[in-house]
């Protein structure tokens, strides 16, 4: 029974995705390490790609050619986001805001994808110890922490509302009334304010829940593999373990897709919220539609 409990504790899938301090100090935890790694990976990917994407000055047709597979991939993604996702919302002002939106997308994507690399398990298997001699695994997913996704959402909130206020303070205040008659303002203004707060909360929770949920499912299925193999043993135990193993592989592929989708959704919704405030071509009808789109995306 003791053995079983030990196994249960070791295979706790939620424990697999929770942040842990390294060396007993929270300022160096799995999440902070993965944040720094994600930042370095993002810069390492994009800066060399940018050098290959930018155009030369020689005047020949070769100046316009993007060189290298990686640079072409980065360019395709950036171009798609700019032309197909941001431009329909932001119109002529797209290029002004696109650097921030690209930053959100690439940083979140790389954080999500790095979380799928089992760095935690590899470092744990290597038997790394902290300064106190306690075994420690370093890794995980930066975006599976509500603190991280919350911070990203707060930055998005500041970016969206700060841009809107700087660009058109009166328009921003008018937006709070949603174009309603004055007697409706006592209702509309609080509703709009609540909506304003709910948007980043939704951004944070969506990303956090998706990344955490996916990793818990993977950890749970892997727990099934271990528990079935260990508890039953033999041909039957290992044979039955194949079923959750296949499930894990399938979910892993799904997680790769989710990593892209969540980065896309976070960026797209940030763009949409920004567009609602800074692009004043919207009339009330479009306003309603964009709220509809937001709800649809939330689902």
């Amino acid at each position: 029974m003791n053995t079983a409990l030990c196994m249960l504790a070791a295979a706790n899938p939620v424990g697999h995705v929770t942040d842990k301090p390294i060396n007993g100090q929270w300022y160096v935890s799995n999440v902070t390490v993965m944040l720094v790694l994600s930042g370095i990976a993002t810069l390492w990917l994009l800066i060399p790609a940018a050098k290959r994407i930018t155009t030369g000055k020689s005047g020949s047709i070769d100046d316009l050619r993007t060189r290298g597979v990686l640079a072409n991939m980065v360019e395709s993604v950036c171009l798609y986001l700019r032309d197909e996702v941001f431009r329909p919302v932001l119109g002529d002002e797209t290029d002004r805001y696109v650097p921030v939106l690209w930053s959100f997308f690439w940083f979140i994507l790389i954080s999500n994808l790095l979380g799928l690399v089992p760095i935690l398990d590899i470092t744990a298997a290597l038997g790394l110890n902290d300064f106190h001699g306690t075994p420690v695994g370093i890794g995980g997913t930066a975006t599976q922490s509500i603190w991280v996704t919350g911070t990203l959402a707060v930055i998005a909130f500041v970016f969206i509302n700060g841009t809107a206020i700087i660009k058109d303070p009166i328009g921003f205040l008018k937006h709070l009334t949603a174009g309603a008659p004055v007697f409706m303002w006592p209702i509309m203004v609080p509703v709009e304010l609540i909506g304003m707060i709910v948007k980043p909360v939704a951004l944070a929770l969506r990303l956090f829940a998706n990344m955490t949920g996916g990793h818990i499912i993977v950890a749970t299925l892997l727990g099934f593999v271990v528990s079935l193999s260990t508890a039953l043993g033999g041909v039957s135990g290992h044979g039955l373990a194949i079923v959750p193993l296949i499930g894990t592989i399938v979910i892993y592929f799904l997680e790769i897709m989710v990593a892209f989708i969540q980065a896309y959704i976070f960026t797209f919704l940030t763009c949409l919220f920004l567009g609602q405030l800074v692009v004043h071509a919207h009339d009330d009808h479009e306003h309603d539609e964009s709220h509809g789109g937001e709800h649809a995306a939330a689902h």
């Binding site: 810069l43 994009l46 800066i47 790609a49 940018a50 050098k51 994407i53 930018t54 155009t55 993007t66 980065v74 360019e75 950036c78 171009l79 700019r82 290029d95 696109v98 650097p99 690209w102 930053s103």
Partner: peptide, 9 residues
């Protein structure tokens, strides 16, 4: 990066 990429695009 973004300036160069945007310039290229």
């Amino acid at each position: 990066a973004w300036g160069k990429i945007l310039q290229g695009l």
